[in-house]
Design a protein around this nucleic acid. Structure first.
Length: 798
DNA sequence: AGCATTACCATTTTT
DNA sequence: TGGTAATGCT
């Protein structure tokens, strides 16, 4: 058979084997940057060249974008002329939005997330126990539903210690996702809530009932209901099997147990299933992903072929050396030995700023330098949690550097968007309770109580007509009537939204007086997104199940700021990872359990493997704590402390804001907390730290490394003054004229003749030991040791 | 009902 | 700190 594509030439041998492998289960373990996407794309193309009808292929990916990108590239490949595709960043290249996850580009392959796929089936074959039209719930719907159930069961009334709804949602969700009891979740994640175990179990049952009653589905329901549908009506499953002869699952390491079962069902006994993933990049255990899935694939699918892709095409050797070392101390399941043929490249740089504040300055400075060599879109800053980038965002904004942040607030989470979408959901389903409440409460004088009454009337449960219930709220009645009209009219989604917008705009204006224009603009955007859709139902489910690619076009060239999770699958020439310190990365929630800790390690692995040529790791020596009103010393992330010294270059920030190369780590205790810090030259008078002359310094140092434990925190500064808390605010620092020097932000205080405690902007609280005329004092700072400091840089504390 | 006050908890990642 | 839920007041 003659192929248009020269597979032998364009793939390495392992890739080629995967691409040309025949029928039957196939597992591809694809190391980071080993051409995973390329392999999938070529396999798609190969199948089609072999005569498989694209409609017979089901491509399950982590996001719809990923699916769209792959089929787009496969289409290009098949069209010829495209040649071997570059490893372009898939996120940025996505074409205009496409209605529904079900159709993509010119190659008509079904693709999308498990959730979106499940929903597309469930809306055709209604699951048992649901009567009426289904609505999808988002996180806010879940929370308000939980609140209603709580009220009904009278749980936690007057008990302030009762967990918050958000906490409950997390716990119940986790139990469901991991398919374990609420009790086990509590035991491992929130032992302090074990007392509420029974209440929570009751609540979970009530919540499940509530959803059925109102035809609501949350994210997990989509998967579980699809499974029960398949089990209850085998003919539906058979139908799907008949349609989809080839199943491909991307990012298989991040599937949870139901998803694995669904994959198994869809593929059948001798099914043609291709699972691609990398156990070393499994980072979604928190939401139920189970690495065991990828490890057990050979058990689940007897006779499965396993192919490992080990050649890395993304990163230069030094980056690869470092990322391999990160994994060196992890337990490995599928052994890999990633290598590259690219030579050269700079060693990764470990930069240790004095504080997180100066980290933001230094990162900004570095980005400016990088912008001379790279396009902004080739630069990314990655961090563990969304809020870690706040300071950097401020600095970037100040310097006019354009950036885009991923992993923050989602478009559809904005209040006004949700308002309008709730109205749209009511068009589809008049009994959508959360939406009804949301819409009704938009009108003045309607609170939760009234809304429920009116809902009762509207649903025919409560006595009295809708007119009567709405007597005091003629505008609401008019709106509901209009919505009912729209339901009957079945206009195009775009038109429907336009009419809803007419109703909504006056309400919007009233509620958001100040930023009303911005919000209206965002809603116009929604109309634009709705344009290509023919089915309101699909529009809404797409918006709830996936982030819309609305902002793509206006993005322009900008630096990327992203959580590590959101950076998955992407790559940049230069990557900065910030806040690599204990309790941030790894997150302090993850130090208790071994599994969580290992996941943090993989997370760092994912972060670092995003870098193609340059990798910069930032580990500030201190973090600003609002609660303490000062800087607290922090320890280097243990993952970095473990790395062989030869894998990176180390730089310390001096007091003057310069970087000074640190050549070697002299002692074997380098990995120990504390030992490292003392060698930091922060520019103060050079005085060897001597803890022996301060009896309580040892204790305080121990404390400093555990500064996040509240019980100890209380013991630190029992007599902390209000005045001292306000002094070193980040604002006053940034606003200083010529405020480059971070040590100059505090107004001079005459300490001569004083004794007791003082506060330094960077070292925090310390005890004054000795005065050194004319203008210096010797101070012992817990965690830093003795320092001789200009008195002008200190504020007095009592 | 809706606002103001008070009291207390909780700090991640996302379909 | 800050966000939120329960309580108290108008």
């Amino acid at each position: 058979m003659a192929y248009h594509i020269d597979y032998e030439k364009e793939l390495n041998s392992a890739q080629l084997e995967a691409v040309t492998y025949g029928n039957g289960p196939l597992l591809v373990i694809a190391g980071a940057g080993s051409g995973k996407t390329r392999t999938l794309v070529y396999r798609l193309a190969r199948l089609i060249e072999d005569g498989v009808d694209p409609a017979e292929i089901l491509l399950l990916t982590f996001t719809r974008k990923a699916a769209a990108e792959m089929t787009r590239r496969a289409a290009l490949l098949l069209a010829g002329g495209a040649g071997p595709e570059e490893y372009a960043s898939p996120m940025l290249a996505t074409s205009a939005s496409c209605p529904s996850s079900a159709c993509v580009a010119s190659v008509n392959i079904r693709g999308g997330t498990f959730h979106a796929f499940a929903y597309s089936i469930l809306r055709r074959f209604r699951p048992a126990g649901y009567e009426g039209d289904l609505s999808l719930m988002d996180a806010a719907d879940i929370i308000s539903a939980l609140q209603l159930c709580r009220e009904k069961l009278e749980l936690g009334r007057g008990d302030r210690a009762f967990p918050k709804n958000q906490t409950i949602e997390g716990l119940l969700g986790k139990a469901r996702n991991k398919e374990i009891s609420v009790e086990s979740v509590l035991r491992s994640e929130a032992p302090h809530l074990l007392a509420y175990q029974e209440d929570l179990a009751r609540l979970a049952a009530e919540y499940a009932q509530f959803k059925r009653k109102h035809c609501l589905l949350d994210y997990d329901d989509l998967l579980f209901e699809l499974e029960s549908l398949f089990l209850g009506k085998p003919e539906v499953l058979d139908l799907q099997r008949g349609v989809f002869r080839h199943i491909m699952v991307d990012e298989y390491q991040d599937t949870n147990r139901v998803q694995a079962r669904l994959a198994r069902m869809l593929a059948g006994d001798e099914g043609n299933i291709l699972a691609v993933g990398d156990d070393a990049q499994s980072i979604y255990a928190f939401r139920g992903a189970d690495v065991q899935n990828i490890l057990d694939f050979p058990k689940l699918f007897a006779g499965a072929k396993i192919i490992t892709l080990e050649e890395n095409y993304r990163s230069v050797q030094p980056v690869l050396d470092l990322t391999n070392s990160i994994l060196a101390s992890a337990r490995k399941a599928y052994p890999k030995n990633l290598f590259t043929r690219q030579s050269g490249g700079r060693l990764p740089q470990l930069i240790k700023p004095i504080s997180d504040m100066s980290q933001a300055h230094l990162a900004c400075k570095l980005i400016n330098e990088l912008l001379e060599r790279y396009k902004a879109s080739e630069i990314a800053v990655l961090f563990r949690s969304g809020f870690h980038s706040f300071q950097l965002e401020v600095q970037l904004a100040k310097q006019g550097i354009a950036f885009r942040k991923y992993g923050g607030l989602r478009y559809s989470d904005a209040a006004h968007v949700k308002d309008l979408l709730s109205m749209a959901r009511l068009v589809l389903n008049p009994l959508d309770m959360p939406s009804f409440g949301r819409v009704a409460e938009l009108f003045k004088g309607v609170g939760p109580k009234t809304a429920r009454k009116i809902y009762g009337a509207a649903s025919g449960e409560a006595p009295g007509g809708l007119e009567k219930a709405c007597a005091k709220f003629p505008e609401l009645l008019a709106a509901l009537r209009k919505i009912a009209e729209l339901r009957a009219g079945r206009a195009q989604p775009r038109q429907t939204l336009e009419i809803l917008l007419e109703i909504y705009l006056p309400l919007l204006k009233a509620q958001y007086v100040d930023d009303y224009p911005y919000r209206e603009q965002a809603l116009e955007e929604l109309l634009r997104i709705a344009e290509p859709y023919d089915d309101l139902d699909l529009l809404i489910s797409d918006l709830s199940l996936e982030e819309p690619d609305s902002e793509e076009e206006e993005a322009g060239d900008a630096v990327t700021l992203s959580t590590v999770h959101s950076a998955k699958g992407l790559e940049w020439a230069a990557v900065l990872v910030i806040d690599l310190v204990q309790n941030r990365f790894p997150s302090r929630h993850a130090v208790l359990r071994d599994d969580d800790y290992e996941e943090e390690r993989r997370l760092l692995y994912v972060a670092c493997t995003r870098a193609k040529s340059e990798l910069f790791l930032f580990a500030p020596a201190t973090l600003y704590h609002r609660e303490h009103g000062g800087y607290e010393p922090v320890n280097l992330s243990p993952f970095l402390a473990e790395l062989p010294e030869a894998t990176y270059e180390q730089w310390l920030e001096t007091y003057g804001g310069e970087l000074r190369r640190q050549l070697s780590r002299p002692d074997p205790f380098a990995a120990q907390p504390g030992a490292r810090r003392e060698r930091m030259n922060l520019g103060e008078a050079d005085d060897a730290p001597d803890f022996s002359d301060n009896p309580d310094s040892g204790e305080k140092r121990a404390f400093a490394s555990m500064s996040d434990f509240p019980s100890r925190r209380a013991g630190l500064a029992p007599t902390r003054s209000r005045q001292a808390e306000e002094a070193p605010s980040s604002l006053s620092q940034g606003d200083q004229p010529g405020g480059e020097n971070i040590s100059s932000g505090i107004s001079p205080v005459n300490l001569q003749g004083k004794s007791g405690y003082c506060r330094h902007k960077i070292f925090g609280r310390g005890k004054i030991i000795q005065h050194i005329p004319p203008d210096k004092v010797r101070v012992n700072f817990p965690g830093f040791g003795l320092k001789v400091i200009m008195a002008a840089f200190l504020t007095l504390e009592d």
